[in-house]
Each structure stands twice: as structure tokens, then as C-alpha cells.
Design a protein around this nucleic acid. Structure first.
Length: 261
DNA sequence: AAGGAAAGCAACCGCAACTCA
DNA sequence: ATGAGTTGCGGTTGCTTTCCT
């Protein structure tokens, strides 16, 4: 017997979300916050699994989402980050406030890949295509998720790769330091309330007001942060700040379990 | 105008990591 | 230490829209 599924899929809605479902989910989260995704659909009156609700909220309903196509500057940053991080879309997305990992992943697969190919670059290795073919032979077994691991395995019997690995680790360290500095810098500049932390203090790194690693990006993040402070979002934040309470959610949960026993 | 192909995007699936009893 | 439950992530699918012939 396998593990019990996270939800009973029988009778659940699938496919595109309706406006009514969106409203239900939105209202529920605004009033109660996010405590346990599995319980959200039950309390919100949705015939969806918790996973589906989570995805819908993160990728579409979250009020701090930035809509519209990615700019060329953002694309360049994605390429730069991808060359260092590989297919770690959530890590890459963390550098773009208001953008989701899914959005960036889709953008990469549909547009950036082609752009790189047109430039004669391998989208996986970021090297000129001929050169990357050789590299691919060595790294053939490497999956994007296990970039570090596969490099380590490969380096055992390949001195050249070991050097490459060392350089890469050094790069990563430099990037991390640079990012930390930028992060602190831009955080100081825009002391906006963080929706993600408000909703779930333990997680949600993608919502932090992080900065970009490229030089001219700081000014952009400033603009983004300042624009986020105005208008409906700020109003929404003010409202939600006073509404959110885990205690009230616990009452809900208790009531629900009483009804069902 | 029709229909087939390609592109874009939302959503699903399965796995791994994490948490907690 | 262990196993069940939950969350998060990345790969993939499939539907819708746009483009081309």
C-alpha cells in the first residue's frame, strides 16, 4: 500500500478556476490567512484539493503579484541567475518580487531558450553550442535539480571539471555576498510590509523585497517597492494586518471537527 | 474563412524535504 | 528513530490563443 493521498480526489474540481472559486479562495484567505492548505478548501467551500488552492493563490491570486511580460532587463537577469543556479526556479524567482517561479519557468521554456539558441548558446550550459556539446558529454547524467551533486560526482575522475567546480563555488560565494549586500541595501530603502511573511512567517521567501544582482536593478526594485506601497495593496495590507489571526482560525478548525464527529 | 501549427500559459503530477507526534 | 502528514519544487501536460498558409 502506498501513502495515503493528500486529499480525496473523487468529486473534486479540476482544470481552470472559475471566478466564483477565485472569490471564495481569496475571501477565505483574506479573512483567515493561511494555516494549513489541506483545510483551506474545506473551510472555503471549495471542491478543490489544498495543493490546487495553494498553487492558485501563489501563481494568480496573491495581491503582490506583478502582471505583464518580463522586461529585457529581467530576462537578462534570469539568464545570469540561471547560469549560476540552474533550473532552481524558486531561487531565481526570489530575485524578482511579484514574479512566480512558474511564470519564470514558463518564460524560460517559451522565450529565453529560443533567444539563447538564436545567439548560438546552449540554454543548459550557457556556453557556445559547439563547446557545450563536449561539456554535455561529461555532465550527461546531471539533472538540473542536482547540479552541485552531479558536479561533485563528475569531478572525482575529471581534474578539469574539478577546477570548473572550484571556480563555480567561488562564483556562488561571491554572488551570495553580493546578493546579501544588495538585499540589505534595498530592504533598508523600502521598508514595506511583507505580504508573504504576514501570511506565513515561516516560509515564503519569494515575497521578500529582495534586490537584483545586476547593477542597475537597484533602481528598479526601488520603483517596485515604492509603487507597492501605494494604492490598493497598501490598503489591503492594512486591512489584512488587523484581520489575520491564527486564533480565529483554530476556532474554525475546532468547529469543523465537531461538526464532523 | 477555415484549419492546422506553433506559442503561451495555467494547472497537474510526482517526488523530496520538512515537521511533528 | 521513525513514520505519517504537509509543503514546496521542478517537470510535464493540455487547453487556449495567435499565427500562418
Amino acid at each position: 500500500m502506498g501513502r495515503k493521498p493528500c486529499c480525496d480526489k473523487v468529486g473534486l474540481n479540476r482544470g481552470p478556476w472559475t471566478i466564483e472559486e477565485d472569490h471564495k479562495l481569496m475571501n477565505f484567505i483574506l479573512n483567515n490567512g493561511i494555516h494549513c492548505w489541506r483545510l483551506v478548501p474545506k473551510f472555503a467551500g471549495l471542491m478543490r484539493c489544498g495543493k490546487s488552492c495553494r498553487l492558485r493563490w501563489i501563481n494568480y491570486l496573491r495581491p503582490d503579484l506583478k502582471r505583464g511580460t518580463l522586461s529585457e532587463m529581467e530576462e537578462n537577469q534570469i539568464i545570469e541567475l540561471h547560469s549560476r543556479l540552474g533550473n532552481r526556479w524558486s531561487k531565481i524567482a526570489a530575485h524578482f518580487p511579484g514574479r512566480t517561479d512558474n511564470e519564470i519557468k514558463n518564460h524560460w521554456n517559451t522565450r529565453i531558450k529560443k533567444r539563447l539558441k538564436l545567439l548560438g548558446l546552449d540554454p543548459v550550459t550557457h556556453k557556445p553550442i559547439e563547446q557545450s556539446k563536449n561539456c554535455n558529454k561529461i555532465l550527461e547524467s546531471s539533472s538540473s535539480r542536482g547540479e552541485e551533486e552531479s558536479l561533485e560526482v563528475g569531478s572525482l575522475d575529471n581534474p578539469g571539471l574539478k577546477e570548473f567546480e572550484t571556480q563555480k563555488k567561488q562564483d556562488k560565494f561571491e554572488l551570495a555576498s553580493k546578493e546579501t549586500t544588495n538585499l540589505l541595501h534595498s530592504y533598508n530603502m523600502c521598508e514595506r510590509k511583507d505580504v508573504g511573511l504576514l501570511m506565513n512567517p515561516k516560509t515564503n521567501p519569494s515575497n521578500t523585497c529582495s534586490s537584483f544582482s545586476l547593477e542597475n536593478s537597484l533602481s528598479l526594485s526601488m520603483v517596485e517597492c515604492s509603487s507597492l506601497q501605494e494604492d490598493p495593496l497598501q490598503h489591503w495590507l492594512d486591512t489584512v494586518d488587523s484581520i489575520l489571526s491564527w486564533d480565529s482560525f483554530h476556532h474554525l478548525e475546532e468547529n469543523f471537527s465537531l461538526e464532523n464527529h
